[in-house]
């Protein structure tokens, strides 16, 4: 579930987008931490992901399919994971290209022990979109970006809650 705040700066420019939300995950924080610091697993949680290529321990490239009405195409994302030494917070830098545009996102998630064997994943993010996608699609961008980010974190929850063959 995501809370949707102002959706832009005071004068309503709309290309600087901020989101936040929370996912309740039915496994312990240690399992969640292992998941969100794994580039391959994070890459595969991107919505409509078509290709995932892990570059190293903290870098993964992904290609996602975007389809909003007539606008359809692929967006290339480069994800960098920045886990905090405390083991309780992970930051992410995501830069994407496609449709002659550039999207830069920073996101962060706090892995919080709910005390009952479950975990609260509190996340927030900020996106800056540039180019035709922002200029022409600005009116739709906010809602779509919000959807994609919500979906990504929901996918994390789903992956972790579903019974998995190996949970190491």
């Amino acid at each position: 579930m995501a809370r949707h705040p102002s959706g832009g700066s005071e004068d309503g420019t709309g290309v600087n987008l901020q989101y936040s939300g929370e996912e309740k995950i039915a496994v312990g924080p240690g399992v969640v931490w292992a998941f969100v610091t794994d580039p391959g697993k994070v890459g595969r949680c991107m919505p409509e992901v078509k290709e995932v290529a892990v570059q190293d321990q903290t870098h993964v490239d992904a290609v996602v399919q975007v389809a909003v009405g007539p606008v359809r195409g692929k967006f290339k994302l480069k994800v960098e994971l920045l886990p905090d030494a405390s083991g309780r917070r992970i930051d992410m830098k995501i830069s994407g290209g496609g449709f002659g545009s550039a999207v830069d996102m920073t996101a962060g998630a706090d892995v919080v022990d709910a005390g009952d064997g479950t975990t609260l994943l509190k996340w927030s993010g900020q996106a800056i979109a540039r180019g035709p996608v922002a200029a022409v699609g600005g009116r739709v961008l906010d809602a779509q970006a919000k959807k994609l980010i919500e979906q990504a974190f929901a996918n994390v929850r789903r992956e972790l809650s579903a019974p998995m063959v190996d949970q190491a």
Partner: peptide, 9 residues
């Protein structure tokens, strides 16, 4: 509504 160049929310 969304805020944009046409006006605030």
């Amino acid at each position: 509504p969304q805020a944009d160049l046409r006006g605030g929310v």
